[in-house]
Design a binder for these strands. Sequence first.
RNA 1: GGGCGCGUAGCUCAGUCGGUUAGAGCGCACCCCUGAUAAGGGUGAGGUCAUUGGUUCGAAUCCAAUCGCGCCCA
Length: 921
Amino acid sequence: MAHNYRDTLHLPKDEQTIAMRANLPEQEPRWQAFWREIDLYQRMLEKPAPNGDFILHDGPPYSNGDIHIGHALNKTLKDIVVRSYRMRGYRTPYVPGWDNHGMPIENAVSKEFLARGEKPDKITLRRACREYAQRYVHIQREQFERLGLVGEWDNPYLTMDYAFEAGLVRIFGELAQRGYIYRGLRPTLWCPTCQTALADAEVEYDEKTSDSIYVAFPVVKPPADAPTTENLKILIWTTTPWTIPANLALAVHPELEYAYVRTNGAVYLLAHRLVAPTMEAFGIHDYTVLGTVTGEHLQGAVAKHPLFERESPVVLADYVTAEDGTGVVHTAPGHGAEDFATGKKYGLPILCPVDAAGVFTQEAGEFAGLPITPEGNRAVIQRLREVGALLHYEPYRHNYPHCWRCNTPLIFRTTEQWFMSIDHAGHRERALNAIRQVRWIPPEGETRITAAVQNRPDWCLSRQRAWGVGIPAFYCEACNAVILTPETVERIAQIIEREGSDVWFEKPAAYFLPEGFVCPQCGASEFRKETDVLDVWFDSGSTSRLVLEARPHLHYPADLYLEGSDQHRGWFNSSLMIGIGTRDAAPYRMVITHGFVLDGEGRKMSKSLGNVVSPLEVIQNMGADVLRLWVASCEYFEDVRLSQEILKYVADAYRQIRNTLRFMVGNLADFNPETDAVPYEQLNDLDRWMLATLQEYLRYALNAYDSFEYHKFYHETRRFCNVELSAFYLDVIKDRLYAESRDSAARRGAQTVLYELAHTLTRLLAPIIPHTAEEVWQRLPVPNKPISVHLTEFPTVCEAWHDKALLERFESILQLREAANRAVEQAKNEKRIPNPQSAKIVIHAPEPLFGTLSAFPTPAAPDNLLARIFGVSQATIEPSVSELQVEVSLAPGRKCARCWLVLPNVDEATELCGRCQAVVG
RNA sequence: GGGCGCGUAGCUCAGUCGGUUAGAGCGCACCCCUGAUAAGGGUGAGGUCAUUGGUUCGAAUCCAAUCGCGCCCA
């Protein structure tokens, strides 16, 4: 081609739009620096908020380790909520927090000391814990900020803040004052070597060989309808002979079938299914089953303890199985969690004749003074053999809980602990009522928390640990009376507020008590402090009180809690207990839960499977906006999946959305909405159709935000960008944008629509991909432009533009477009035309399509709107009485060297069509 | 073992009250363009709706069981 008219076109220039390659890992920190510089969070709060406050209360992550993908999901969702509510006219303060006290940090710090061969005292350990927690608060804060989260990051709440710790003491005091707090027994897994209770997480399961024994309990009150009462015995099996002295009952399953078995002159009762294997173990081949009975009929029967003058009644329990043993569970309420529950249910005493070191106490009678293993076990077995109660002994290998620290086999002991009563003053009912007032999203959450609250036992608040807030009680050294009054609690709280909770462990009791304080019970003046600390769920459960009420720009209750679904039994529950207990109201109005992040196959992420995706790596390689877009793409009310493959697809989606925005921004470089915009009435049908379609999209998008269904917004936005924009509208208006004269109504009309599209999309995307939206925003020619996209409002649907009739009319045109595409594709495949640009189509259209199309003039010129819509150089329409037909042929004329359309009026010398001739002038 | 959920195309998701041949975008294959170019456009092929049984004139949709997966509890 002789002429080059490229420079006369209005092509978008690279430097006037956003870069095609986002380079998010480098660019995002710059936008974050910009937001810090302008103090974006503060400015967001200062914006007018016609809809009032919306308080999303942050559930505190534990200040230990790097953030993982679950944190990223949770915090990104929160950020999308906060940003989108702000853009819908709410004031959205967001105070992030951390959970600092507790076992994981204490254990990590202890291990550091252990590695150095040091044995720290409590204060040294606690100080190290505080430093450790502080260090991870810093680390996680940076990681969260790198995700692009907006909030009060320079003033977060920490549960180890002195004021927070003092607040915990006061809330404990309030609950005590209201009658919720009591001391009681509780079964705990206990390490006799470390002489401490262990949390579940500190228990390691290892193989162990135990002494398993079969013991016969003589029946003193036989079951009704027993086939015989002569020498009747109930047979049990246990792997912990040392618990026999604490036996108080024999548990059977109500629905299991039991058999009376006669052998060797006695009749034994055991589970029918286990008769054969048991007899085989005993080496007995000669036995007779006299009859069977279901467990529920055994209730009321009473046996006698084989060693002591004590009865052991038959009780019912659902946890009894016929898997191994005899189907009758030897029950020692002092030495097992299930046994304890059964003991409570049947009003049995809680006998625990074992001290902290694992030595039998006086309550164990003849065994007193013996360590429970191995001497205790041996002695018990020996005595059982002597009285003829031992039927069989064998070593038994099984998984058994061990101490994580010293690897000693653990035992169950009942110990005295502090509790919050869940049924005090109708508390449980009040909590259940409050649950019904809360909006749960998804609605199954209500079922789940209701079940959790209905079934939860009293809350054990005490822990025998170092890193926590001390329970603010004293004991009289003389009479052991518990000292816990509003005055003593408030004194302690004031001191902790000033000096931190370490002070409780540093100073003597007298430091916290008024001068001259005497025991109200016995008048003595010597006291010791409680050494237990509060359960950390008490810490986090108190945040609603200690954060929402403490900060003037927040309020109780919060409008929203948003956490993983595991928190129904965790934070939602503990917060509710404290909320109902101290404020008689739930701490939240609405609760949203999300699922867990699984791998591409739907399996749990774990180091051993090697399928863990680190958010930090994703941010480093692809950018936070890609990770955030993934969050938005997920239907998060259920479990979500993440893998490298999924990330690749999300990155593709990001690029497509970005390129769409890039094209629009590039073509708006010379557009000023205030002076160049074309009034709606003067826009052509296609442009008005685009605006109408934009309104439909916008309505859908706003609804998706309203219902927290960001994945619907994601999908619709992706479809809108690809289908309506890239593949259609943006393609069609290129001729006008590039080839028409700069200020022509045709070009300015297209830009007017382009501006609306970009302006709308950018703001809608801002909560999800805040960095990219900001980058686009800074390039958009918005009049009186706010300094950041995050200080704008969401667009609202313009009903005047939502022209339903036009949308309907275009439906048939778009269908026709598909038919035309197929016809052109076929002509291309048959080598009748090389490409659509060189084609002319003739549409033989029946009514009513012909009527619709007739509204558009079809000259052999660039302003043939139908030709532009169908992507060919020329198009004409013909009425038809038969079905629709699209005829494709080579367009007559020659190709304009400037606009590349094949037209009849292209000048041979200049190679320009009439339109381009006029434009170039 | 119990409670609460989930299972639709390679991926992410729609699918209203049970009602035509189960949809979309991406990805994939083939083609076009080279003036959105580490872009853009067109056409097309992909489904035993986890499995089995039941209810119904009719089931992705309702019921039951089974399998797989997740959270919580034991």
